[in-house]
Amino acid sequence: MRDPDDVRVLVPVAVLAGQVIPDQLIRVLSGTTVVLLAYHEIPEQTAPEQAREQFEPKAREELAELVSVFEAAGATVETRLVFTHDTDQTTERIATEADCDAVLLSNPAPTIDRIIVPIKEDINLETITKVAAAVGRHEDIELTLFHAVEDDDAVSDGEALLSEVANELAVLGVSREHISRVVVVAQNPLQALIEGAKDHDVVVMGEEKPTLRGRLFGETSDRVAEQTVAPVLVVRRPLDPEPDAEDADGPTTDGPE
């Protein structure tokens, strides 16, 4: 049975494309169980088995090196190695199979001193708080709890919500001195978040349900990652029951333990 205090983060890495996970981000994730998803996207006409035969030795070598870096920082590491036609679909499947609480959208992070955590009502609040605590317990990191409301009348409710989250973070081991709370009045909450995130180094935010707008303009977390150019930890929402779907890659293999 899984330890309820365990926070599991999926870290997708384009293992043969020279993608680098910043050292500061590795340090921040050191208090979690990191599930390294080493993937290599292949053309539609290429069979995963063929790609595995050609590229697996080099991919495993790169993956082993990355595992050693995370373990040296103190993280518990699990691995998956996949050759896939559809990276997004594979990422979602592995996140579900590995029971991950969050998925990393990686961006450069030369320093990590401040993390912003947007809170939207009480949606998936327990898991968001748990993930924020896991990455925010470091003594040199400040956590900003952020909430946007539509008018002045809702400010007090927003402050009460953030106070509740701050109390739970303190119970989970985050110093109260390192927690600040910001409630803003904004007609465009996403733009307010992007503005608020500009002087922060990492965003921890909840995943939203898929929408038509998201399909047309990109999911909120992707837009935040693009416009802030900061790493984003997307806390996964509880999944709706769905029928099993065929994935676009071959058998998943575990890498070095």
Rank of each mutant, 00 (worst) to 15 (best):
V203F: 03
E195K: 14
E219H: 12
P238L: 07
E71V: 12
D222K: 11
P243R: 12
F55N: 09
A197S: 06
H138E: 13
T211C: 06
T90P: 08
E164S: 14
L36T: 05
I21C: 09
L105R: 06
L162C: 11
I128S: 04
E242P: 01
A154P: 00
E121F: 10
A14Y: 03
A102W: 03
T253K: 11
Q227T: 11
G158K: 09
L66I: 10
R27I: 01
T144L: 14
R176C: 02
Q191D: 14
P243S: 08
T90W: 02
L104T: 07
E164N: 14
Q227V: 01
D140L: 10
V35Y: 03
A154L: 15
P57G: 01
R137K: 15
L161N: 07
S30C: 09
R93T: 11
D101P: 08
V182R: 15
V185Q: 13
V235P: 00
T228E: 02
L193Q: 06
G255S: 00
V103S: 08
V184P: 07
D151N: 14
R80P: 04
R237L: 15
I123F: 14
A230H: 12
R80A: 13
D140G: 06
L36I: 14
N167M: 12
S180T: 15
G255K: 09
E226V: 10
L212G: 02
A51D: 05
T129P: 08
K130N: 05
S221P: 00
S156P: 00
V204P: 01
M205R: 10
V34A: 12
R60V: 03
E246Y: 11
F217D: 03
K209T: 12
L233C: 00
K120S: 13
E208S: 13
V117H: 04
K209P: 00
A192D: 01
E195T: 15
V15K: 02
A38L: 09
A95I: 01
C100T: 12
A134F: 04
V67S: 06
P108H: 05
P231M: 09
D201R: 00
T76A: 15
T84E: 03
H40K: 07
P256R: 06
V7Q: 06
V82G: 02
A64S: 13
H138W: 08
D86R: 10
D244L: 15
L216Q: 05
